[in-house]
């Protein structure tokens, strides 16, 4: 089974039925997979804080939400994470491409990568880092944990996890 189907299977198995996304090259296939699944309402957003607003509404409407985004979006969403998701205590799994880590071809991505874990730690956001493909085995437990504690939780997925950047 592809890693993308495996991830989306775990989302569906955990009752996630509302997913918002802002693309990253690294996330293209998993986003396609989300879009293909009839169990999931996929609502692309224009900015990740907007996406977190959509997720908050969907959650209050009775759906389990998730957001798929790039780690650069941490810079966009700190206010929303603190004053909406955390302040009102809402669960939000965040599947995040961890750009700027090992095997990254674009130097600028490193500039946010070096802040990513520090910012998440400062926000007291439980954070998991997938580096090897087998790390995906933890996803099911992470999703259960997220809805158990009603917090935003970060799953950082680096280039090595996704199998590099092809020929780059």
């Amino acid at each position: 089974m592809s890693i993308d189907s495996r991830i989306v299977n775990d989302l569906v198995a955990n009752g996630i039925s509302f997913v918002t996304t802002v693309p990253c090259k690294q996330l293209a296939d998993v986003i396609d997979e989300v879009d293909r699944r009839p169990e999931i309402m996929h609502v692309p957003s224009n900015k990740e804080d907007e996406g977190m607003g959509l997720c908050a509404g969907a959650f209050m409407g009775g759906k389990r939400p998730a957001i798929i985004m790039q780690n650069t979006a941490i810079g966009v969403t700190i206010n929303t994470l603190a004053t909406l998701t955390q302040f009102y205590r809402m669960p939000l799994p965040m599947l995040i491409s961890y750009r700027g880590e090992l095997r990254e071809p674009v130097a600028c991505q490193v500039e946010m990568a070096v802040h990513t874990k520090a910012l998440l730690a400062q926000l007291n956001i439980p954070t998991y880092h997938f580096h090897w493909q087998k790390d995906v085995e933890e996803l099911d437990n992470i999703l259960k944990y997220t809805f158990m504690c009603s917090k935003p939780v970060a799953i950082l997925t680096d280039a090595n996890f996704w199998g590099g950047y092809g020929d780059q």
Partner: peptide, 18 residues
């Protein structure tokens, strides 16, 4: 109580979900 700008997004997410 915070998060300027997201009322319309929260409302849309809610409307789509139920």
């Amino acid at each position: 109580l915070g998060t300027m700008g997201l009322a319309s997004s929260i409302g849309l997410g809610l409307a789509l979900a139920q």
